[in-house]
């Protein structure tokens, strides 16, 4: 039996991944805060600033951020390779790679923002940065959608049968509360709403689930005059209704995730292509002083 509680336990990100993400983002945020007067200054004022030599895109700090961003993107793309090599066990678990993918993507986005120093000056940089931003946003959204898909304790997505079994458990739990039967049902192959509607429901909430929850609370209030018991039971009702609604939407979420993966990868490839153009352009026309990169400059 895969369930030991009405809702599956949340998957916990390893502490070192969180620490790496926090340290990286804190470093970037600190640099951005300290040098905010430079990063927010107009282009000409930036160029006249004494910090320009360090913080401009080709400066010993700005260029370092660009190089780090490029490296992080490369690391980030390794996740795609890992997904293609599922059978290679020594490469580690897919969840760890996903954490690395998320952390490197977020940090790369932060590095690129500071590398650009607040200004997108060339077309290639603009396209690459825009692509990265879109990829980053889709990644965040996709990661949220992915978290909404019901999973087994091992993290695998539930199959439709497993969804039905879980739904039956929820229905029993619900009946034990003395309420009418749940009106949701996970059904495959029925006519699904559009992916945008599904995405909107994921992001902003399911109006049907909210309406059902309100109805069940009203019933609960009518049947249980004890306020304390009613409050405790109401939470259970909300959780059961929400999970039941997700189980009922499983097919929609799976379809959304499939499309999202395609789009995310496609955007990532476009981003990589434009970023490569940007890097090539910088190498061609700029006199990059890779020997002058300053790690200490990241911590002024």
């Amino acid at each position: 039996m895969p369930w030991s509680s009405p809702t599956p336990p949340a998957r916990r990100t390893p502490w070192f991944a969180l620490a790496a993400l926090a340290a990286g983002l804190a470093t970037l945020a600190r640099l951005a805060w300290i040098e905010r007067s430079y990063f927010t200054a107009p282009l000409v004022q930036q160029a006249l600033d004494d910090r320009h030599e360090r913080l401009r895109s080709s400066g010993n700090v700005g260029l370092l951020l660009g190089v780090v961003a490029a490296a992080l993107i490369v690391v980030n793309l390794c996740y795609l390779v890992r997904r293609r090599l599922l059978g290679v066990a020594w490469l580690g678990g897919l969840r760890g790679w996903l954490d690395l993918h998320v952390v490197s993507g977020l940090l790369a986005g932060g590095c690129v923002m500071l590398h650009a120093a607040g200004h997108l000056r060339s077309a290639s940089a603009t396209i690459a940065s825009g692509a990265l931003l879109v990829v980053l946003l889709t990644g965040v959204v996709g990661r949220y959608v992915l978290a909404q898909i019901p999973r087994t304790r091992e993290g695998r997505e539930l199959s439709l049968d497993e969804a039905h079994a879980r739904f039956a458990e929820l229905r029993r739990d619900f009946a034990a509360l003395g309420l009418p039967p749940l009106e949701f049902e996970p059904v495959a192959g029925k006519q699904r709403p559009s992916k945008l509607v599904t995405l909107a429901r994921v992001l902003f909430g399911d109006p049907h689930a909210r309406a059902a929850a309100r109805r069940y609370r009203s019933l609960l209030a009518e049947r249980s005059p004890d306020v304390a018991v009613r409050a405790r039971v109401a939470d259970q009702v909300d959780a059961i209704v929400a999970e039941a609604r997700r189980l009922a939407r499983l097919d929609d979420l799976s379809a959304l995730m499939a499309s999202w993966r395609f789009l995310h990868r496609w955007l990532a490839l476009v981003m990589v292509g434009t970023a490569a153009c940007h890097v090539a352009l910088a190498i061609r026309w700029s006199e990059l002083r890779l020997g002058e990169l300053s790690w200490r400059g990241l911590w002024p």
């Binding site: 290639s124 690459a128 434009t274 026309w285």
Partner: peptide
């Protein structure tokens, strides 16, 4: 992007 990088490389 490549075309822009080539024809309008100015930063």
């Amino acid at each position: 992007a490549a075309l822009l990088a080539r024809e309008a490389p100015s930063p």
